[in-house]
Design a protein around this nucleic acid. Structure first.
Length: 476
RNA sequence: GCCCCCAUCGUCUAGCGGCCUAGGACGCCACCCUUUCAAGGUGGAGAUCAGGGGUUCGAAUCCCCUUGGGGGCACCA
């Protein structure tokens, strides 16, 4: 068996979509698992849909996820160029060859005629498709009249393609029309460029989303007409939104960039995406990048579509955040916190990060979660959040006592502080819950926060004293 | 409308004829731990394997039909 060569072939028409990148991931994993090559080819054959910046966005997304390429526009390779607009000569030559061989023909039907034709077909209750008006006209390309090149599909018989996931799939040839190979602007369509390049780049496995399955018989006919060997077809299950329709913008975040900005970790993303349509054994669900590269196999890719479950992604992300070393997390968080305008001292950050690490689901939550380490809590927030179990007078009295305890604490360390405050609770004859709760709110402005005494220790005595005084003042 | 694909807990899935009175994970609920929130631990609810026919001694697993869902029918990819 030859070494696999697989490819990810996106169009630079916008921000890379998460469903799209999942295809990239499966290709990459297969290449890595088999010792094959992962190739990226940019399919920019639709001049009208090009979006400036999309080219870089795609490659940046791959870089962010760590899907390193063996060949591609940024890394080069022996089969380049890896951008289709730089390969136009190849397509026009191949299209002309097909015409010369009698497999294709020129067509000058106007879009008006085609529209009218389709409309009539629909109204007659037939399925839309080119009526082969120009098939036998023997047109030659002429100046002035826009022409396209169409492929001659068989008009009868059955076309059977073999898909790695689904087995044999048959199509009635007569239902497939003579599709366009070369557009009137001289650019190839997807069908032509894809087949020509996959062959030219010695691709062994075409792995793409299932939505491409209906065009497989056309491609198969093209391979046959060219006399090319057919690569193996692998149509990956599609990713659905919660409503079970194809995942799209209206389902919320779908671009890789959005996930990156929301603070998802590449490895968490990879793990989650890999489990959408593939599994190792049905038991193991946390798999590192290395595990995935080692164990990925086509045999275990399922045929049915998968719903994108945001909650599960969040769980994966939390799991991977917790697995980070505190130092690594701090490094990730520093720019986010600095973005708030906070001066982030590395030593201070190193102390607060462990306190929040197991509570974070996304990195983007950090600024809010850690805000009280940088900003003084708002007095109003304090008053509103104070424990309801105690009346105002008792609360104030408790905080005054807490202030006193803090002022006289001998050792400003978590254990010592806890001991001192437990003693205080006893002396005040208040349960530790309400007491600690009142102090927590006074010092952090929140009812939910990291362990109180660790927090006090990190905040430092001076700030704690100031905040307790402010809280007491706010109580009037 | 036509063509194609798919069908196990709400979700991701294990299962490839007997090991299944269907396993794991997320989510959910309860309890434990506990100063709050998390994290962690334990337990629970949750799928008559879409429905109906076959095949077989035996079917979630094989075949057919029905139903449901999805995808595709451009000079877009």
């Amino acid at each position: 068996m030859t070494t696999p060569r697989v490819r990810y072939a996106p169009s630079p028409t916008g921000e890379p979509h998460i469903g799209n990148i999942r295809s990239a991931l499966f290709n990459w994993l297969y290449a890595r698992a088999t010792g094959g090559s992962f190739i990226v080819r940019i399919e920019d054959t639709d001049q009208n849909r090009l979006v400036p910046g999309a080219f870089d966005a795609i490659l940046d997304a791959l870089d962010w996820l760590g899907l390193d390429q063996d060949e591609g526009p940024r890394v080069g390779g022996a089969y380049g160029p890896y951008v289709q607009s730089e390969r136009l000569n190849l397509y026009t030559e191949r299209a002309a060859w097909l015409v010369a061989q009698g497999h294709a023909y020129y067509c000058d039907c106007t879009s008006e005629r085609l529209d009218a034709m389709r409309k009539a077909q629909q109204e007659a209750g037939r399925s839309p498709g080119y009526d082969r008006h120009c098939r036998e006209r023997g047109l030659a390309p002429t100046d002035g009249t826009p022409t396209v090149v169409r492929f001659k599909m068989p008009t009868e018989g059955t076309i059977t393609v073999r898909d790695r996931i689904r087995g044999e799939v048959s199509f009635e040839a007569g239902l497939l029309d003579d599709f366009v190979l070369l557009k009137s602007d001289g650019f190839p369509t997807y069908h032509l460029a894809n087949v020509v390049d996959d062959h030219a780049m010695a691709i062994t496995h075409v792995m793409r989303a299932e939505e491409w399955l209906p065009s497989a018989p056309r491609h198969q006919q093209l391979y046959q007409a060219f006399g090319y060997d057919m690569p193996e077809l692998v149509h990956l299950p599609i990713i659905l939104g919660p409503d079970r329709s194809k995942l799209s913008k209206r389902h919320g975040a779908t671009s890789v960039r959005q996930f990156q900005e929301e603070g998802y970790l590449p490895d968490a993303m990879l793990n989650f995406l890999a489990m959408l349509g593939w599994s190792l054994d049905g038991e193991t669900d946390v798999l590192s990048r290395e595990d995935l590269q080692r164990h990925f196999s086509l045999e275990r890719v399922v045929a049915s579509p998968a719903v994108f479950d945001h909650a599960k992604l969040d769980w994966y992300n939390g799991t991977y955040i917790r697995a980070l070393t505190p130092g690594a997390l701090a490094l990730q968080l520093a720019p986010l916190l600095e973005g708030q305008g906070w001066r982030v001292d590395p030593a201070y950050l190193a102390r607060i990060v462990p306190l929040e690490q197991e509570r974070l689901k996304k990195l983007s939550e950090a600024p809010e979660a850690l805000a009280f380490f940088f900003n003084e809590p708002h007095p109003e927030a304090i008053v509103q959040s104070l424990p309801k179990g105690l009346d105002a007078a008792t609360t104030k009295h408790a905080l005054e006592a807490a202030l006193h305890t803090a002022e006289h604490a001998e050792d400003w360390e978590p254990q010592a502080l806890e001991a001192a405050y437990r003693g205080l609770a006893e002396g005040l004859d208040i349960k530790t819950g309400p007491l600690f709760g009142a102090v927590r709110v006074a010092v952090t402005g929140r009812t939910a926060a990291p362990p109180l005494f660790d927090t006090l220790a990190v905040l430092g005595r001076e700030r704690v004293l100031a905040r307790l005084r402010a809280a007491i003042g706010a109580l009037g």
